[in-house]
Design a protein around this nucleic acid. Structure first.
Lengths: 199, 199
DNA sequence: GTCTATATTTCGATAGAC
DNA sequence: GTCTATCGAAATATAGAC
């Protein structure tokens, strides 16, 4: 199960770097997250850090990828009766505790809209996966009778994703707004008009 | 009515610069929109351009401000029976013809989430105004019976704005999606559950 | 694996002539 | 009002020693 020493050390160091990078971004903001700054935070020189990730953009994308994995693991570790909606709402609420993470996401995704950006593929794939996941959940809820059937599931999923993304920008501008609550409003709009009796 | 010569020329030149700046951003993307690049596009040196706007950020904010004015004037020039919703939807559809404008908006707003950013105030004020405008419209529609009354107007307005912002990012990643159509889905969710008879 | 040192580039801004 | 020239800062990436 254990990898060979040298290799395992490299993997562990990578993880350490990613964790420290997220911390410094959270603490000092995306603007100061130069490779040198991130290297300092983990006790490496700039060149030492780039030995692990090659480029700045790869490092940033790796930070987000790791965070996605963490989020996904947490949602999957939750009780099975938690809908994707609820897991989604919880994740948003948790992320609101990490301003730097949201800032990283918002700013990197904005830059990665350029097809030539190194993280472009990461974001398009991430969005596609997420959208399909949410759409599947909505279809199940439509079959259940717990979601409106007059709205296309794919379109609803797109709306939820887009709202969450947009709310993150709004929240960065004004951190007093409650992202999870606003998303909850949208989710409520997707409920069937006539309140179904429970069970 | 006409200003004095010299002053009018300065204003006209400013307008010319803003128009040309938007064109080059639209054509070559935000990433290449350095002051030097924008100056070239209008036949000025870098220093010559900065004579008019002082800093790069002021220039960018001015481009967006000008666009807002254009959009607002167009909406107001429309027939009076056009709701804010419809004007909103039309504006989104029109903006989809100008990728560089969306890119400018998405990337600059992401950067301006930093309170220290020169364009921060511009975006917060813009959002506040827009949100109040849309919320007022929703309240009127709720009184009309053309919008659900079980949703808070301010929250609905926030959702609409956030969705539009988020959809812009999605659209930059994949320009085949129809932003206006997706927003229309959200607007439909805000209609009263029981279809009201017309007139 | 990690560091020092540096190459290279790019950018925004300013000074000063015309 | 516009240009040339240049400053100064910052960043990424690379080369090569240890």
């Amino acid at each position: 199960m254990a990898r060979r020493g040298a290799y395992a050390k490299g993997v562990a160091k990578r993880e350490e770097i990613l964790t420290a990078a997220l911390e410094v971004i959270a603490r000092e903001g995306y603007g100061r997250a130069s490779v040198r700054e991130l290297a300092d935070s983990v006790g490496l020189s700039q060149a030492g850090l780039l030995h692990y990730f090659g480029t700045k953009e790869e490092l940033f994308a790796a930070v987000l990828r790791k965070r996605d994995e963490t989020d996904l693991a947490r949602v999957e570790a939750g009780t099975a009766d938690v809908s994707a909606f609820e897991g989604f709402r919880q994740t948003i609420g948790r992320n609101a505790d990490v301003p730097g993470l949201i800032q990283l996401y918002v700013r990197l995704s904005a830059e990665a809209t350029d097809p030539a950006h190194p993280a472009h593929a990461f974001f398009t794939e991430r969005t596609r996966t997420f959208r399909e996941f949410v759409a599947g959940d909505i279809r199940r809820m439509q079959a259940d009778g717990t979601a409106r059937t007059d709205i296309d599931a794919d379109q609803a999923a797109m709306l939820i994703l887009a709202s969450a993304d947009g709310l993150q920008v709004q929240w960065l501008m004004d951190p007093t707004i409650d992202m999870a609550e606003h998303v909850a409003v949208l989710l409520r709009l997707l409920e069937p008009p006539t309140t179904p009796a429970d069970a």
